[in-house]
Simulated assay, not measured.
Amino acid sequence: MRYRVRHSTHYRYSARVTSCYNLAYVLPRDTRRQKCLSSRVSVSPQPAITRTRSDYFGNQAYHFEIQRPHRELVISVESEIRVSHPDQGLNLDLGISYEQAVQQIRKDRSQQALNAREYLLDSPMIAASEELAQYAHQSFAPDKSLRSCVADLTSRIFSDFTYDPDFTTIATPLAEVLEHRRGVCQDFAHLQIGCLRAVGIPAKYVSGYIETLPAPGEEKLVGADATHAWIAYYCPDEGWVEFDPTNDTPAHTQHIVTAFGRDYFDVTPVKGVIFGGGDHPQLSVSVDVARLEEAAP
């Protein structure tokens, strides 16, 4: 499947910003199931300095500096991506068991396994807790396949928690999400990552986009797609496998990856420092994910 993604971020400030220094994770990355064919960023006002680099996690980090006064900032990105179906099978009962996976992760000294074990550690927004372990253990039996355990946890989060964009903010602690059982995709991804780490399975945060399809007979609204978050867990036999707890599904061709990190803090779409700007800047975000026709062979 081939997509064109247009992502616009618009800040309006109540007072003049004299200068700003920013880091954006808005460029889709290459993964095992995805290839970024092209990507272009435009910023208004014109930046004095721009630079793109590959960060520690292999993401494309876009830095820019604006050194002129402004009251608005617009970051627009247009990308073309080809996404293939995940190469893992759909049979949840096949594959390594949960107990075998934990043992192999502990013993394996390969570079891949050592890198994966970094995602067992606490991160800025996800800390180990007994509550997370207790919630996770209901889905994990020693002789059950790891994939079916993760799928069960995904389904339980989907069933037990209510999607509520008015309940949480970026700074809402994970303990509050677990207590009140409400949140958004970022919170549900953090929750599942915390649960997986608590039972010995490395897990990381996936930031990206998801294509939303209109109801039958209705036209798709431009800009109605969304930035999204889901998870990837490490399996010694399969590598990294992605699941989406907000939608109770494995990641598929409608999931487009921009960045991997330990949690949201590592891959915030846009963050930085501004000088001036007043109080309460207004932020609006528009995302449009459009399917493109594939060229004939």
Rank of each mutant, 00 (worst) to 15 (best):
R2W: 05
Y3T: 03
R4F: 02
R4G: 02
V5K: 04
V5A: 10
T9H: 02
Y11Q: 05
A15V: 15
A15S: 15
A15G: 14
V17M: 05
T18D: 13
T18M: 14
Y21A: 14
N22Q: 15
N22R: 04
L23T: 08
L23E: 09
R29C: 10
L37T: 08
L37H: 05
S39P: 01
R40T: 07
S44C: 14
Q46S: 15
Q46I: 15
P47I: 08
A48K: 12
I49S: 07
R51W: 09
S54D: 11
S54F: 14
D55W: 11
Y56S: 01
N59L: 03
F64P: 00
F64Y: 08
E65H: 02
I66W: 10
P69Y: 01
H70N: 10
E72N: 02
L73S: 06
V74W: 09
V77D: 04
V77I: 09
E78V: 03
E80C: 08
R82V: 15
R82D: 11
S84G: 13
S84I: 10
P86E: 09
N91L: 15
N91R: 14
L94T: 11
Y98V: 10
A101E: 09
A101S: 13
V102W: 08
Q103G: 08
Q104N: 12
R109H: 10
N115W: 07
R117T: 12
D122V: 06
S123D: 06
P124C: 14
I126M: 07
A127V: 15
E131Y: 04
E131S: 09
H137Q: 15
Q138K: 11
Q138W: 12
D143I: 13
K144Q: 07
V150N: 00
L153Y: 06
I157P: 02
I157K: 00
I157T: 06
I157H: 00
I157Y: 02
I157S: 03
D160K: 03
T162M: 06
T162N: 07
D164L: 15
D166I: 12
D166T: 09
T168V: 00
A171Q: 11
A171P: 05
T172Y: 07
P173W: 03
H180I: 15
V184I: 12
V184P: 02
C185A: 09
F188A: 03
A189D: 06
L191T: 10
G194W: 03
C195H: 01
L196S: 04
V199L: 05
V199M: 01
I201M: 06
A203C: 12
A203S: 13
Y209L: 08
I210F: 03
T212P: 11
T212H: 13
L213I: 12
L213Y: 09
A215G: 02
P216V: 02
P216K: 03
E218N: 03
L221K: 14
G223Q: 01
A224Y: 07
T227A: 06
W230N: 05
D237R: 11
D248S: 07
A251G: 07
H252N: 12
H252Y: 11
Y264V: 09
F265Y: 08
F265V: 11
V267D: 03
P269T: 04
G278C: 01
Q282C: 08
A290H: 12
E293R: 08
